[in-house]
Every structure is written in structure tokens, then in C-alpha cells.
Design a protein around this nucleic acid. Structure first.
Lengths: 132, 132
DNA sequence: GTATTTTTGCAACACTGTCGCAAATATTAA
DNA sequence: TTAATATTTGCGACAGTGTTGCAAAAATAC
């Protein structure tokens, strides 16, 4: 799906900034922070706009907000609606989707209602592991 | 294990602040942020001290640093060394340990090395679910 | 093309987490 | 117990994240 297509689907105004932000996310196989997006967009839009767009896209479930170890949140396109795991490399810092690695169906204790998941494995990614 | 016991075990100086911080963590079944600790300690020690202590305890694997949805990290005593899941309630904000709920053994793709996990389920906890 | 609605950029803000440094406290050894 | 040494603390300053109000700008609706 294209950036414009997604914006149409969710009835969001097609502004220059939003299209560019979405394009970056569509073209990235790793999760990006607001900072990283800002760098890639080279000042096409304001910090606040990026934050607002990311918040909106997260709310619409187009992207996934990943709380990583540090203070910064990273965002990645939701490829599948199912729960899945993300991997953060402590070496290169990349956060990526672990497609194919499915967390077993987790049964919560009685009374708990699951809305969303944030599964993160921290370690060394395959690329970095080669150089050790 | 007592606060003093833990400090001895890890060869950490037994300062007033550290003992109090550890006692709070030992007495809490939910994860606490630096802010929450500060409130509970009523100014017994400085922000910086709390942060430093939490960092050290995390490094020693005494506590677990949980990256929650927002910007703030929360900390909880490590009851078991195994991977386990934490649950964050969007209603009351509490983050707790889901003992008994074990994530299936997750197999990573070839080359990836796991060091640590951060599994968080977001939803409504049993207490809050009652009042809906 | 104009009117209306939505979004943007800017500036200001609160908050988190870190750090250097001198003073205070804890540990060690006598 | 005291003096010497090592560690930790509090303070202030700082960089960074994420949010918000508001007027200007852009997008949508008519």
C-alpha cells in the first residue's frame, strides 16, 4: 500500500509532511525514532508535526510504537496485525521486526484483558554477530 | 533477602539512600519509576542518587528495567532469572510481573544472539476490569 | 474560487536521565 | 576508635524527548 493510499484509508489529510513521513516508514525495515525521521526528511517538516503524525498513525494502528531500552520510542510499520516480536541490537542499535518468530499464545490470568503487546528481545543481530 | 543482604552480596556500599530504595522495591509488587520512588522516599535522597542506584541494580540484575509505553522507565525486583512478561494497565497505570505466565521458548533466526528480554502486555488489569 | 476545516510551524514548556565536581559518608586498616 | 582512603551524594547544569496553545498556512468541501 502506498503512503497516499494509507492516508486515504484512514481519512487523514494528505499533507506533504505526512506523505514523506509515511514513505520513510514504508521504505524502512527497521524501526525509526522521531529524530531519525527528522534527519532523513532533512527539515521538510517540524518536530511537532512528526510527533503528531506518529501519534496519529499509532492510534490508527498503521505503525507500532516500540518502547526501547533508552528514552526514545521507535516506530515501525505494522506488517501483520498479530502480535510479534521486535529485536534490538545493542551493537548497531537497530530495532527490527522478527517476522516468522511468533510468541506462543500467552494466556493471561483471569480478569486481565489484553489490548496490545510490546515484545522486545535485546541482543546482537545477525549482521553484528558476524563481526565478533 | 533483605536490602542490606543484597547490598552486601553485590559489594555495594550500604548507604542510607540505597537501603531505602531497595526496601521500597522489595516491598512493592508493581514496578516503580524514579519519580514514584522519589515520592515514596519523601526526599530522603536526590534524583541523581535514585537514578544511579537503579542503574547499578539493573546492571547487577537485581532489578528489571521495564520500558513502558511512555517515556518513563519502571523498575521491579527480579524474582526469577527467567524471561517473563510484564503487564501494564492503561487504566490505573500499574506495571506488574505476570508470574506464572511464561512466554513460549522463542527461537530466533540464525545468527541472532539473545541477551535480555522486555515483554510487555498492555491492557486492563483484573482490578480495573471489575469496575467496567 | 471561496469558505471551512484541518494541519503546520513556532515557541515555550515539563519532564527524564546524565554528568562533573566538591562535600559528605562509608569502608578499611592501624 | 581514629585517621586514611575510597566511594557515594547532592547540587547544578545540561541535552534530549515529547506535548501544547496559537496564529498562519494548507488542504478539503462546496
Amino acid at each position: 500500500m502506498t503512503a497516499i493510499g494509507i492516508l486515504s484509508k484512514y481519512k487523514m489529510s494528505k499533507t506533504n509532511g505526512r506523505v514523506k513521513i509515511l514513505k520513510e516508514l514504508l521504505g524502512s525495515d527497521v524501526a525509526l525514532s522521531e529524530r531519525e525521521l527528522q534527519t532523513r526528511l532533512e527539515g521538510i517538516c517540524d518536530r511537532a508535526t512528526i510527533y503528531r503524525t506518529l501519534k496519529l498513525l499509532t492510534k490508527k494502528s498503521v505503525i507500532h510504537k516500540i518502547a526501547t531500552e533508552g528514552t526514545v520510542a521507535k516506530f515501525i510499520l505494522k506488517k501483520t496485525p498479530e502480535d510479534h516480536i521486535h529485536f534490538k541490537c545493542t551493537d548497531c542499535g537497530k530495532v527490527q521486526c522478527m517476522t516468522g518468530v511468533v510468541p506462543g499464545n500467552i494466556e493471561l490470568p483471569k480478569g486481565f484483558i489484553k489490548k496490545e503487546t510490546n515484545y522486545l528481545i535485546i541482543g546482537i543481530c545477525d549482521e553484528c554477530a558476524k563481526n565478533i
